Computed example of a mutant assay.
Amino acid sequence: MAQLYFYYSAMNAGKSTALLQSAYNYQERGMQAAIFTAAFDDRFGLGKVSSRIGLSMDALLFDEELDFVERCQQLRETLGRLDCVLIDEAQFLSKAQVRQLTDVVDQLDIPVLAFGLRTDFIGETFAGSQALLAWADKLIELKTICHCGRKANFVVRLDADGNAARAGSQVEIGGNDRYVSMCRLHFKELVW
């Protein structure tokens, strides 16, 4: 029986690496896995999921208009089968899209593995993450560490001068040059 999994963490915990490993495992067994990533995230090239350790794979794009049930049905028809759906940057899903993913699991019997951030740079939950935390069958935290050695739960956005941003758009694409994972103590010192 298929399930909806939400793998969440702060940045640099290996979410994309874990997704790529899962995709490889399906492919190695001759199974069809569809990989999706956010259409506006072009840090590594449009339609690419890349990890910091150098792994990458092509991905299908999702934006706010994509209907996952319809797209997964199309993929199943085109490919002859669809054994798994993998989603990178799942925090950017809408609540409606997370509901659609529950239908992919419950009606199409396809497992969905979603990977994303739990909270944004000011400690607020993303809409996609909030829905996944509420509706996923399995919640799996991937861990990374703060500069002090404690578990990092939060992400701090840095401005052009290297200071912690306390306001701004929730969505701003960037990597290690713009974001730093920190424990709650150090996050609060900089952001609250």
Rank of each mutant, 00 (worst) to 15 (best):
N153A: 06
K151I: 05
A134K: 13
R118V: 03
V69Y: 15
E172S: 14
V85N: 01
L82Y: 05
G149I: 10
N153P: 03
Q170V: 15
N163F: 07
I110W: 10
D159P: 05
G123I: 01
C146H: 04
V180F: 03
G174H: 07
G174Q: 07
E141F: 00
E77T: 14
R118W: 09
N153K: 08
L108P: 12
T78I: 08
A114S: 15
C183N: 09
G116N: 12
I122T: 12
I145M: 09
V112N: 12
G162R: 10
D137C: 01
S169C: 05
W135D: 03
F126P: 11
C72V: 15
L93G: 10
A127F: 08
D109E: 13
S94A: 09
D161Q: 05
G168D: 03
W135S: 02
C72M: 14
G80M: 10
N176V: 03
C72S: 15
T125G: 12
L79C: 06
A164Q: 01
E89Y: 02
G123P: 00
L66Q: 05
A160D: 12
S181L: 04
K138I: 06
T125P: 12
E89P: 12
I87G: 10
R150F: 13
K143I: 01
D177W: 03
A160T: 02
G123W: 02
I122P: 07
T78V: 13
A167V: 01
F126Y: 13
P111N: 04
L75D: 00
Y179P: 00
A164W: 05
P111V: 01
L132P: 04
Q73L: 14
A114H: 12
V69C: 15
A152G: 06
L132I: 02
Q97S: 11
L82K: 05
I122G: 13
F126T: 11
R76G: 14
T144H: 02
K95Q: 10
T144S: 03
I110Q: 07
Q107E: 14
R71N: 11
N163K: 10
N176H: 10
K143E: 03
